[in-house]
């Protein structure tokens, strides 16, 4: 057997720290997601209530405080935030698996747990940006038409924005975890949303399992009860806003931990 020279390969210096590579993947993926068509569509959807609010305040003279409360309670928290979270959380890594590009990522010197967390981080940042900025704009628009002084409005706006942000984080984590567990982008998230966020959220006690309940707690909108809840219980469950923050954060952390562990052991037959 002849022997060939052992390769001595020169290359520029590099950093193989897992955290550095993870941060790099997060940044690259965040840019890709932010400039995607999907992001543009979601931004337009999220801005629609802001435009409607602006028109309503300037032409109809509606009260800004009531408008903000109604839009947050009936449009953003129950519908638009989970919608965007579903579109960005569900595909976090499943798109790479379905598109068979996951091979390129799993063959980089990057631990799989970091790979998942980086991809999730990118989806989370995109969801947050797309959902929270329109609500901040909505608050600004509603401020124009509000009858109360600014000092009185701030807790309402802060609660609405905080609830939206925590809700976006929890929903994105849950949808991403469900996608990893069930190997599908949207369907497990939709089933979860219908069962937990629509049915459970309308039933006393079981409503504690829904993110929606805790978003309402954070936003100070607990009195907004569902129809079934009204039939079963006389008084709605009510907690301090920080309890809602803690529980929503727990949902997000638990979902991310489960998804990371599952993804780490996943074998990709692509």
């Amino acid at each position: 057997m002849s022997s060939s020279p052992t390769a001595t390969i020169e290359r520029p210096p590099r950093t193989l720290s897992a955290l550095t590579l993870g941060a790099r993947l997060l940044t690259l993926d965040f840019k890709r997601q932010l400039f995607s068509r999907k992001a543009l569509v979601n931004i337009v959807i999220q801005l629609l209530p802001v435009l409607i609010g602006l028109v309503a305040i300037t032409t109809q003279g509606l009260d800004g405080t009531t408008l903000f409360r109604n839009l947050i309670s009936n449009v953003y928290l129950p519908l638009l935030i989970p919608l965007t979270a579903l579109f960005f959380g569900g595909p976090t890594v499943i798109n790479e698996i379905e598109g068979r590009t996951i091979t390129y990522l799993t063959l980089r010197p990057l631990p799989r747990a970091i790979l998942y967390l980086a991809k999730f981080g990118a989806s989370l940042l995109t969801t947050l940006l797309i959902t929270v900025i329109p609500i901040v704009l909505l608050a600004a628009v509603c401020m124009i038409g509000a009858s109360e002084p600014l000092g009185d409005l701030l807790p309402l706006f802060a609660g609405g924005i905080g609830a939206a942000a925590l809700g976006a984080i929890a929903y994105t984590a849950i949808f991403a975890a469900l996608a990893v567990l069930f190997y599908a982008t949207l369907l497990p998230g939709i089933v979860y949303f219908v069962v937990v966020e629509m049915v459970f959220a309308a039933i006393p006690i079981l409503e504690l399992l829904s993110v929606r309940f805790h978003m309402r707690t954070i936003a100070g909108l607990q009195q907004e009860r569902g129809f079934l809840a009204g039939l079963i219980a006389d008084e709605p469950l009510a907690f301090e806003w920080w309890v809602g923050v803690l529980i929503a954060a727990f949902f997000a952390i638990a979902a991310t931990a489960v998804a990371t562990v599952v993804f780490r052991q996943r074998q990709f037959h692509v």
Binding site: T103, L107, R108, P109, R112, V270
Partner: peptide, 20 residues
């Protein structure tokens, strides 16, 4: 398996036609 540091010295051309 489960040692990503190996991939610093490894290149792979997959069979599948998959790209961004």
């Amino acid at each position: 398996w489960d040692d990503p540091t190996v991939y610093a010295e490894l290149g792979f051309v997959p069979e599948q036609d998959a790209f961004y």
